[in-house]
């Protein structure tokens, strides 16, 4: 009996979590002329792809998508390269000065200069309005650095030392011994970085002004905050005539288009992401 109630309750929780996504999808597929007055609970009212058509006809979405993808791929690659490059030497026990360097990294987790000094720095480096501003300032996350370094330490000491005595260069040890043994942690950290890059938006609000360089999340945000049709470029007579009816529908279509990639990959990455959280929570 108790188990049945529990199963039902958990089903309710799962539905409460998933339903809002469904609602937005159904809204975006509904006939824009019929959405006023509601009534979209389980299936769309009427059926129309007009909002998607309007959205995909505009240049903005493609630019935003392209920029977000570049950010994701370039950003994550640089993250993994930089983090590994930095974490490995500092995981080697005989490295002179590793404690002081680690301490300096650790201190950055406790105290940061904050939004304005970082903004002025990015500005003076000439990175404003470029995708570099979204990639370079976050190249190494101190948190991920510590997870990786601690993981390297759990495998390395003896193997490391014996490889070194056998005359293997540190680089060779890294590529033939350490990295193959660290696949789970590297996969997890790559996922952390990738999910971060895909969802981050505040740095883009700060650093990116021009439409052509804007990322998907900010595109969606300006879409929600202003008139979505204006956002798509111009309110000509055609636009204004359908304005009232499609405004909300286009917003919903944008939400769907923005969330879709994550929904597609989510079932495949979820397990590794959660595993990564557990690796990270074990204190090294």
């Amino acid at each position: 009996m108790g188990q049945i109630i529990l199963v039902m309750f958990m089903l309710l929780m799962a539905l409460l979590t998933l339903y809002p996504f469904w609602h937005v999808l159904m809204y975006s597929l509904s006939d824009p002329r019929r959405v006023l007055g509601g009534g979209i609970l389980l299936i769309p009212r009427g059926f129309s792809l007009t909002s998607y058509q309007l959205l995909l006809d505009s240049k903005g979405v493609f630019d935003a998508y392209k920029n977000s993808l570049i950010r994701l791929v370039a950003g994550t690659s640089i993250n993994i390269f930089m983090t590994t490059l930095f974490a490995y030497p500092l995981s080697v026990k005989r490295f002179i000065g590793r404690n002081s360097i680690t301490l300096l990294v650790f201190f950055t987790m406790l105290f940061q200069g904050g939004m304005i000094p970082s903004y002025l720095l990015v500005k003076s480096l000439g990175m404003l309005d470029t995708l570099w501003a979204l990639i370079i300032p976050g190249a190494i996350s101190a948190w991920n650095f510590f997870i990786m370094k601690n993981y390297f330490q759990t495998i390395s000491p003896e193997i490391e030392e014996s490889a070194s005595i056998d005359g293997a260069s540190p680089l060779r040890t890294l590529f033939t011994i350490i990295l193959p043994l660290s696949k789970p942690v590297i996969a997890a950290i790559a996922l952390f970085y990738a999910v971060y890059h895909w969802n981050a938006y505040f740095d883009a609000v700060l650093y990116i002004q021009s439409q052509d360089t804007q990322v998907l999340q900010v595109f969606l945000r300006s879409m929600m905050n202003t008139s979505s049709l204006q956002q798509l470029g111009g309110a000509d007579s055609f636009m204004t005539s359908i304005h009232a009816v499609t405004e909300e529908s286009v917003k919903m279509a944008t939400v769907v288009i923005s969330v879709l990639p994550m929904l597609i990959v989510y079932p495949f990455i979820q397990k590794y992401y959660v595993k990564g959280i557990m690796i990270g929570s074990v204190k090294g």
Partner: peptide, 9 residues
């Protein structure tokens, strides 16, 4: 796994 902007929408 979904950003706050999307959840806002």
């Amino acid at each position: 796994f979904v950003s706050w902007v999307i959840i806002g929408g």
